[in-house]
Amino acid sequence: MQTLTPEVMLEVNNLKMHFPIRKGFRQRVVGHVKAVDDVSFAVRRGETLGLVGESGCGKTTIGRCIMRAYDPTAGAILYCNAKNEQVDLAALKSSDLKPYRRELRMIFQDPYSSLNPRMTVLDIVGEPLKVHGVARGAELEDRVANLLKRVGLRPEYMRRYPHAFSGGQRQRIGIARALALDPRIVVADEAVSALDVSVQAQILNLLEDLQAELNLTYLFISHDLSVVEYVADRVAVMYVGKIVELAETTALFAQPKHPYTEALLSAVPKPDPTMRSKRIVLEGDVADPANPPRGCYFHPRCRYAEDRCKTETPALRAVGQVGNLSHFAACHRAEELNLRGVVS
């Protein structure tokens, strides 16, 4: 097992998650959906790594593999725990995962289905504390009250049920639950996507404050590029199960190196009528992850595609450097193309 450099907290190496497609009476496997197909990246201590892509690109699956909600098909998830020991989360048995369930936590997208409607806020936020034998009785109530205060809810509400709260407040409860065990990494899967525009900003600010206060590392998964640009230090762009570009946020948004990132950026409607730009409208649909095209998965929709893009699969490689951070892109023509970013 390779050792992690000190600034890296989590490293994903060649991660694959293939879901079998079953058909017929005997449920025979007739193929695989390659939801995550050979993905490698590192999450640095204290940073927010944004993971963007369209639906079905595998970003949520990566989050769930790291949380070991799924058992990855192949690959390693190297994690450096609080005692500075290195483990491969992908190789652990489910029974050995319990200590890591305290250090890696998740915030869910849907503030409605992620809270059990039959449990009080005290039970929901207190559940991880009870399961790990951290606190009980009056001490549990104290700790839950503190957590609620920390996420901006009144502790008096802990005996209420989730239906008493609005979407934004429910998301705060979900955040309190994620923080209950003093985690080190928080995977936020579309944490603000289901919220109203005016409430999104409240939750984004809260997440930012908590990160500074508790020294958290975030993996922020979202389809919303403007939100990711706002919260993330570095951004990884995914297309059909692969990372196509990974770079420091400003660099990626100002000078994208992959044609897909360029198209994605130009497609986002900007809330300023004076910036009505010419959109790059991609032809066709996203490739089918069960049956992706040969070569670069993006080539059928790419306006810069050459012959070799149809046959050779490009590797994710460093194509530039900003400070001490490399700019990675998986495009044969990354260096020669001069792609349009968003003007600031």
């Binding site: 909600a69 849907d110 992620s114 059990n116 559940e127 991880p128 399961v131 979900g174 639950r177």
Partner: peptide, 17 residues
């Protein structure tokens, strides 16, 4: 398939619980 069941699993709760 509910998220709250997944959340309980990620809390570290046992299958019985």
């Amino acid at each position: 398939e509910e998220d709250f069941v997944m959340a309980a699993r990620l809390d570290g709760a046992s299958e019985m619980r």
